[in-house]
Design a protein around this nucleic acid. Structure first.
Lengths: 200, 200
DNA sequence: ATTTTTATCGAACCTTTAGTCGAAAATTAA
DNA sequence: TTAATTTTCGACTAAAGGTTCGATAAAAAT
């Protein structure tokens, strides 16, 4: 049977493959990313990839699963702050902003891949989707509470949600130069667009 | 040589193909859209597509060219309103909003395809890119003017641009239900987020 | 009516690429 | 050392899908 160290090494190799895959997914455009290239990037033979993952899809999904799990686990601790929807909302956004800043490539992938990807990969309710849904529910809940407490603009929470989603997305991922945005700039933004209600 | 009517018919057939292609690009995910499917949808044999277009890419590009040209020509008439950046900005946004509402599928394609598509299609500075750039320049110019006149939030115009871009995009294209948004709702939005500066 | 031009498409062609197979290294266990 | 297990990969297969070819039909010109 496999030793502890063997299992750990195996996990490391898996990560090596996933990182390589992310690079390739990023550089080439998603569907143009080939197993051959991932293999080259990961410094393994193509056949070896199939020793660790059963398909290209699985690699894809695994990146999403791990990523969204990480997002969820990062914000989970701060979302139970009762009675302070705006602060909580901003805290959570900032946490995600920090993550994005640390690994822009991964997060751009996490936030954009679901749009681009074949919807066939969505069937079977993958793990990552669960985390994504949970996160959106939390945000929408905070918005609803914040709206009713007049801390946010008075409008339908789902629309506000979309606007903020777009805003956030635009701030980090649109534009030609995709340089990360500092925490200060981002807080500035949040305050300007959604934070200056009911406070002045 | 070809008669007037022949040329017109040819153009009609081209449009038939382009519309079919759009449907297929939309339904399946871009790269999964096959010439076979486009042919089926257009009700032509696959080989016939190559009589009208020299490649799959060309079909793709042609949709973008025609679409962005249309966008540009729709806003061009209103952007020369001198001295009223905020009004002009909102007018232009509203015009685009109206277009989007009329043909959501096409515009979702126009606004999202450039992100998803292989960058190889961007080489050679395609026509549509020109219109897109012109449009963005106009918007950014209006923002700069509006900022300096305190009609907009005081922040770097490029950042504001990104925010509004994301906002707009989110409003129309994010979310599960992609139902069109009414003009009223949209004006509400614009006012709430960028329009209530320097006026109250 | 006949010739020429325009339009159509079925059947191949050919490249790309996901995934498999079986054998050989490398590592671990005995 | 030798046997068992784990890991690696070169070479192959199969299928998908873009593109071309050559023949035929339809329309226009003469």
């Amino acid at each position: 049977m496999a030793s502890d160290r063997q299992i750990k090494e195996r996990e490391l190799r898996k990560e090596q493959i996933l990182n390589a895959a992310l690079k390739v997914f990023k550089a080439n455009e998603l569907e143009k990313a080939t197993m051959d290239e991932i293999a080259k990037e990961a410094d393994f033979g193509k056949a070896t990839l199939y020793y660790y993952f059963s398909s290209k899809e699985e690699i894809f999904i695994e990146i999403l699963n791990r990523g969204w799990k990480m997002i969820w686990e990062s914000i989970e601790p701060v979302i139970h702050n009762p009675g302070k929807p705006k602060d909580t909302f901003i805290d959570a956004l900032n946490i995600i902003g920090t993550l994005v800043r640390k690994n822009q490539i991964l997060f751009e992938f996490l936030f954009t891949a679901p749009q681009k990807m074949p919807s066939s990969l969505n069937e079977g309710k993958p793990e990552w989707k669960g985390y994504q849904v949970k996160m959106y529910s939390v945000f929408e809940g905070l918005l609803e509470e914040g709206i009713s407490k007049k801390e946010f603009p008075q409008m339908r929470s789902d629309l506000l949600m979309r606007a903020i989603g777009g805003l956030f997305h635009g701030l980090f991922f649109l534009g030609h130069e995709k340089k990360p945005m500092s925490r200060e700039t981002m807080e500035d933004f949040i305050t300007t667009f959604i934070g200056n209600y009911g406070t002045k």
